[in-house]
Structure formats: C-alpha cells, structure tokens
Amino acid sequence: MLVNDMEVKYNGNIKELLLKLEYPLEKIAVLVNGELIKKEDWEKYYLKDEDYVEIVSLVGGG
C-alpha cells in the first residue's frame, strides 16, 4: 500500500501501522482512500494492500 506516497508492505490495523512506521499517535489524522478515519476506529480498521493512506498533521500556516 502507499503511505504518504511511500510503498509499504503491511498487514494490520491503522494503529499498528503508525507504531511500525514510528509515527506519533497524537496530533495527527489518518485518511484512508480520502476518508478521515477517527482515532477511536484506528484499532478496528484493517488496511488492505490497495489502500491509499495519508497521515497528516498541522504546520505553520496563515
């Protein structure tokens, strides 16, 4: 699957993916195929090979 456009081989739920890739679990949001997945659903949401995952946070902006 693609995570922020990087090819990642992975089988499991969103929370485990974040831990595996060493992303923070706080202050981020996760989109799967363009859909916002709420934090309380990260453990029950199992990712598929063809999923397009984006991990987003906040940056400086006007």
Binding site: N4, Y23, I55, V56, L58, G61
Partner: peptide
C-alpha cells in the same frame, strides 16, 4: 495553522 501531510524526513514526531 495549516493542515499538511507529515513529511517523514522533516517533521515526524515534531508538531
């Protein structure tokens, strides 16, 4: 503030 993808090299773990 703005909303952007986390850049793995630059701002992973630093918000």
């Amino acid at each position: 503030v703005a909303v952007r993808r986390i850049n793995t090299d630059r701002n992973k773990g630093n918000s």
